[in-house]
């Protein structure tokens, strides 16, 4: 549980922290596109190198980001083995592509949440999706829901750990066969869900008492000003994205 870094903000004054949240959300989406259009070893190497550079300049400890994929490494490995076995031709390449895509996607989402607070993400989403208001999409509510979800990921992780320890102290055994593990995990999931619903109710009351449903335009706490970091980040990302497209379109690939 402690390995999951998704949703945990890492306070710092690094260049990625200073970049506008709207821009980071756009980069995040485009990076996912770039790893999915890269189907060669060269393309994947470019994507991975760019991600490592981003992690380095973010001033977030490498271990914090890499820790995020520990929880899915088994899934990534099993999926890659299945792909390798089911692809008689280019099985190795297909397996590596899938593995790198999964790991990169998890790392880049962890990097986004480590360098951006949930409320910055909410403000960024609200601004980026504001055009949807014209078709009566509740953009503000969606953005705040995303922000609260991210905020509560570590809270629920801690809660799950406490329940796990409490059940172990009461004699529950979480080792043994897979079917036994599946049946005992219910002893953690039931109180966890119960607690999550109780927390949701209390949070809703707290937000209501703090005038969340007040009928007016909510003030954005983070000003949307483009800084020199944004311009530089935009140029670097554009260069990276064009480069991955070029690598994809190269005739010898």
């Amino acid at each position: 549980m402690r390995d999951v870094t998704f949703g945990r903000y890492y306070p710092s004054r690094g260049p990625l922290h200073e970049t506008s949240a709207s821009l980071k959300l756009l980069f995040f989406a485009l990076y996912i596109v770039s790893i999915f259009i890269s189907k060669t070893y060269t393309g994947l190497a470019v994507c991975t190198a760019f991600l490592l550079i981003c992690i380095f300049i973010s001033r977030v400890p490498l271990g914090r980001v890499l820790r995020s994929f520990r929880s899915i490494i088994i899934i990534a490995l099993v999926s890659s083995v299945i792909v390798y076995l089911t692809h008689p031709q280019d099985g190795a390449l297909a397996a590596v592509v899938l593995f790198v895509r999964l790991i990169s996607a998890v790392c880049v989402s962890a990097l986004l949440t480590l360098t951006t607070t949930p409320s910055e993400i909410a403000d960024g989403l609200e601004k980026s999706l504001s055009f949807l208001r014209f078709i009566h999409v509740p953009v503000r509510d969606i953005a705040l829901s995303v922000s609260i979800t991210l905020h509560f990921v570590p809270v629920l992780q801690e809660e799950a750990e406490k329940i796990y320890c409490a059940q172990k102290a009461r004699g529950a055994s979480f080792s043994g066969s897979l079917s036994h593990k599946a049946s005992t995990v219910v002893a953690v999931l039931v109180p966890l869900f119960s607690s999550a619903f109780r927390r949701a109710g209390e949070l809703a009351d707290s937000m209501e008492s703090r005038c969340y449903d007040y009928a007016c335009e909510r003030t954005a706490f983070h000003e949307s000003r483009f800084t020199s970091y944004d311009v530089l980040a935009g140029l670097l990302f554009a260069a990276y994205f064009l480069f991955t497209i070029c690598v994809r379109l190269m005739p010898w690939q």
């Binding site: 903000y9 949930p118 905020h151 927390r199 707290s206 703090r210 909510r218 003030t219 954005a220 706490f221």
Partner: peptide, 29 residues
């Protein structure tokens, strides 16, 4: 103010959470 602070705090940064209420009122930044 409720009993459990973890169930009331909506932001990860202290000043962002304190500003949640005034932001809801639509006050100037």
């Amino acid at each position: 103010v409720f009993q459990n602070p973890d169930n009331q705090i909506v932001s990860v940064i202290v000043e962002e959470d304190v500003a949640f209420g005034p932001c809801n009122l639509g006050l100037p930044l």
